[in-house]
Amino acid sequence: MEQRLVQFNGEQLACKLSGKGTPVVCIHAPCIGSLNFSYQNALSDQFQLIVPDLPGHGESSSFGGHLSIGDLADLLDNLIQSLGIQRPFLLGYSQGASIALEYCLRNPDSVQGAILVSAFSEVKDLYLHCRFFMAQTMSALRGIPLLARSIASSHLDDQTMRTAWVQHASQTDAICLGSLYSAGHQYNCTDRLNELRMPFLLVYGKEDRQLRPYAELLDTHISHAKMIQVPNVHHQVITRAASTFNQLCRDFIQQTTK
């Protein structure tokens, strides 16, 4: 795996690259960083994986600390162009899926397809509002190590992996993280979903009942979407059901690129 630091106007975006073949750009959830996709490294035997650390995460600069979802989508586009990548697939997890959606809306001819995991196009229920407010508050109170431990324990059983996740996530810039949660809280692209024409794979944990209305909303409004609910797993599909999820990615990309 190659670590790349891409420079933009005095700031840098850290990015991991591995494998060859069809490019897949992976967009992580807040306060995890590129290690979010540790269990997707297996896909590099067939695809080229591009896994950036969002601003303020890992070795990436904060880019001023205050970025909207649109800003992040544009920064992602700059990264993809800088790396010379042509028409990638996007893989977005949780709030990373919101960035993927905005990227697809802004660059419809530059994407082959998108895989959205535990995704939402807006935040409209009390449960998710409270989760975001809690994370914003912890960021403001410099509680990132505690938040990182909570996220790692919910995603992983392996203690070595948990330790690596916590160490990586604890580097996260507090101002940048609070801004990212705030941006996700405000983001709403539901009214534009019918503009999307590329193929989408929507993946949710069958036990993730809180996101079921969001899953149905996306499935209804995106014309070329296929939704799959993975049994016996909640929100953390990419780690808790990694083998099943990875095979879904392989099948979707292969079918789309025939």
Score class of each variant (00 low, 15 high):
75 L>Y: 00
108 P>K: 07
190 T>C: 14
191 D>C: 04
83 L>S: 07
122 E>T: 14
158 D>E: 07
147 L>R: 02
171 Q>P: 08
148 A>T: 08
123 V>M: 06
78 N>L: 11
148 A>W: 06
130 C>K: 12
128 L>A: 01
62 S>C: 07
109 D>Q: 09
68 S>G: 11
158 D>F: 00
59 E>V: 02
65 G>L: 05
113 G>C: 10
188 N>Y: 05
155 H>S: 10
59 E>L: 11
176 C>S: 15
130 C>R: 15
197 R>V: 02
69 I>T: 04
111 V>L: 06
156 L>Q: 06
192 R>V: 01
88 P>M: 06
57 H>E: 03
78 N>M: 09
152 A>H: 07
191 D>N: 05
86 Q>P: 00
63 F>T: 14
143 G>M: 11
77 D>E: 14
72 L>I: 06
69 I>K: 02
96 G>W: 04
108 P>L: 10
165 W>E: 02
91 L>T: 03
99 I>F: 00
70 G>P: 15
71 D>R: 08
176 C>A: 15
161 M>R: 02
124 K>R: 06
162 R>E: 02
142 R>L: 14
189 C>G: 05
153 S>P: 01
118 S>W: 00
167 Q>C: 08
182 S>W: 01
103 Y>L: 12
190 T>R: 12
132 F>A: 11
123 V>H: 04
132 F>P: 14
64 G>K: 05
138 M>R: 11
90 L>E: 07
71 D>S: 13
146 L>I: 07
172 T>S: 15
122 E>I: 01
71 D>P: 12
114 A>V: 15
78 N>Q: 15
127 Y>T: 10
160 T>E: 04
120 F>V: 01
142 R>T: 12
151 I>M: 14
59 E>Q: 08
95 Q>G: 03
179 S>M: 02
101 L>Y: 08
90 L>W: 09
182 S>P: 00
134 M>R: 14
59 E>W: 00
155 H>K: 10
57 H>T: 11
111 V>A: 00
56 G>P: 05
122 E>W: 08
70 G>Y: 04
172 T>H: 14
107 N>I: 03
171 Q>I: 08
149 R>V: 01
168 H>Y: 04
137 T>R: 10
92 G>K: 07
169 A>I: 11
103 Y>G: 11
87 R>K: 10
104 C>W: 07
112 Q>T: 13
137 T>E: 15
73 A>G: 13
188 N>Q: 04
142 R>F: 14
104 C>G: 06
70 G>S: 15
61 S>V: 13
114 A>N: 02
194 N>D: 15
190 T>A: 13
125 D>S: 05
154 S>G: 10
156 L>I: 04
58 G>H: 11
181 Y>G: 03
118 S>V: 00
